[in-house]
């Protein structure tokens, strides 16, 4: 019993991270129909900034947190303005290749700035594990869950109750119609990259005390976040969050009961099963296309 609970708890922790990254994918996909392969690098940047501001400079936690997320969001805005916007008339596949280029570029830049070694980040809260029905959980994991849930709720509030958020949803639903209603689409696409990057940075920041920050940490996290987004249907934000948690838990159970060596493969076996059995994702709507 304690064993299963232990796996569930660690699955929830990594699930929260995947959920945030998956949400980032969904936001950009909804705005542009582009699958942003640089998403994982935003996670890495969040963690790297945190290592600098909290680990090295010793700034107060909230300041370091805000700076890391804010700067990564700024990078997201810049990425859109400098690489996606100039190529906005190109085909989707060209745009996707551009995001791959951006991913390689950001990784190279990070290696240049921070080096190849992984950088330590001090724990935000106490390091003493808490016992819970025979399982243990470190306080950082609880913090991860709380921050992730708060971010998801905050984002939901932004999309449902602010004019900008509603405009972004309108653009995602039908760009042309949104334009006809007088919504300027281009700034919103840029904003989508900013929000998405910021959200992924949150994931990178809160996971950094556990995994530390390395220049190449983004690739696998990005791929798993993408798997979670596909699991949730790629367009639905609720789906992305559910997909993230589901992926985290299933992966943790697979690692515990089958083999931890194949942990990284488990997420993608789940992805393949999902694609073959229910291709529109858990919560996505089947595509209905007019000829």
């Amino acid at each position: 019993m304690g064993e299963i609970l232990q796996y569930l708890l660690s699955g929830l922790t990594s699930g929260a991270i995947y959920a945030l990254i998956a949400l980032g994918f969904t936001i950009i996909y909804n705005a542009t129909e582009v699958i942003n392969f640089a998403q994982g690098e935003f996670v890495m940047l969040g963690a790297m900034f945190m290592a600098t501001f909290l680990g090295k400079l010793g700034l107060p936690l909230p300041v370091a947190f805000a700076l890391s997320v804010g700067l990564t969001a700024l990078v997201g805005l810049l990425v859109e303005r400098l690489t996606i916007y100039p190529a906005r008339r190109a085909s989707t596949i060209t745009l996707i290749i551009i995001t791959i280029g951006v991913s390689i570029l950001l990784k190279g830049l990070a290696m240049f700035i921070w080096g190849k070694d992984s950088l330590p980040v001090p724990a935000f809260v106490g390091e003493k594990p808490i016992s819970l029905f025979g399982a243990t959980i470190i306080p950082q994991s609880i913090l991860i869950l709380i921050v992730a849930l708060a971010s998801v709720l905050g984002l939901e509030f932004f999309f449902r109750h602010t004019t900008t958020g509603k405009a972004m949803r309108a653009c995602a639903a039908n760009r042309l119609a949104a334009r006809l209603l007088g919504i300027r689409v281009e700034p919103l696409i840029m904003l989508a990259f900013g929000v998405s990057a910021g959200l992924s940075a949150v994931a990178g920041v809160i996971i950094s005390p556990i995994t530390f920050a390395t220049y190449d940490m983004g690739t696998m996290l990005g791929l798993k976040g993408f798997a979670a987004a596909v699991l949730g249907g790629l367009t639905s934000s609720f789906g992305a969050v559910a997909g993230g948690f589901l992926l985290g838990i299933l992966e943790s159970l697979a690692a515990g009961f089958i083999s931890s060596a194949y942990k990284d493969a488990a997420a993608f076996v789940i992805l393949l099963l999902m694609l073959f059995l229910k291709p529109e994702g858990l919560f996505g709507q089947g595509e209905i296309k007019k000829l």
Partner: peptide, 21 residues
Amino acid sequence: EDYDVLIFGVILVVIMIFLPE
């Protein structure tokens, strides 16, 4: 040397922006 990845990324992005086809 260590910059090669960085330059590779820049070249890739630039080609795709200016010669999307």
